[in-house]
Amino acid sequence: MRRAIIGIILLLALSLLTFVLFFSSGVDVTRFACGKNCTPEKRATTEKALGYDKPTVVQWTDFLQGVVVGRDYPDDPELQRESPEIVTHCPAPCFGFSQVNAKTVNSLIAEAAPVSISLAMVAVFLWVLFGVLFGLIAAVRKGTWIDRGIVGATLVVYAFPTFFIGIFLLKYVAIKWQLLPFPQYVTIADGGVGEWFVNLLLPATTLALFYLAGYVRITRAFVLESLSEDYIRTATAKGLAPRKVLFKHALRAALTPLVTMIGLDLASLLGGAIITETVFSYHGLGALALRANVSYDLPVLIGLLLLAGAFVILANIVVDVLYAYIDPRVRLD
């Protein structure tokens, strides 16, 4: 409960900071929203319609009100009376209205989110599976060339920039050697789970290769540490199969740090993998953010920043709660 309250306070601070940062910046935010043939009057109307003429703090409280009870765009009652046809209702939780796209931020996020979520899920699946597997192998074969090879190779792959790996997979694996089809996002409803997975394989691999090294290291380190513990010797001594000792007892020690890492990495990915989505032209949250940034679409940027921040804060809370289940020694206060 205390964590949830701190989390909400953090989110409020995050949103206020974001507003101050963007609206006190001096960059003319209405220029893009107003369009090409912009007259001073038209600009003033736009400013009013978007609420940019109000002080930052008022805009912020309006935004918060929108999140809680929803709001109408444009907000101004005068403008609503003049041209009722453009009024858009944005139900709670309303994260704003993008003038550039003439859509609510919620609908833009709802369009892009499935892509980012699918990508994140497949990527997490890949790197956790291979990270833990390789980490275990490296720990069991400690000091041999297998161990050195696994640790070295994952570090080298990690050291190459993500966009280089992505472009390499795209240009060579998909186009030149044609080992996999050219990746295009296919929803499960359109192509079934198989199509969906195969098409996500390359971008997810790009992401997974970046995270793999960290998971191998953590798994290896904690398994190695626990392998020298007394309870492992006890388990072996009582005649438990080596495989069972490894998976049931040794791997257990790595579970807590792994859950922490998975939680936080997944949260940061759910906010959108900007580079990977751009390389593979997937229209997820990251690509949406990049487009919003180019057109200086502030409501979308703010919405995405807060969404991503909320994921991170939420993940922290979830990880803390999970601890208590994984490790009975940990108690929630």
Partner: peptide, 22 residues
């Protein structure tokens, strides 16, 4: 520290670039 960590860095960097440079 929690607040800084909760900020999606890349996204913020992108968005803050024109402002920061100005």
């Amino acid at each position: 520290i929690d607040l800084v960590l909760a900020f999606p860095q890349t996204l913020l960097l992108l968005a803050a670039a024109p402002v920061g440079l100005a």
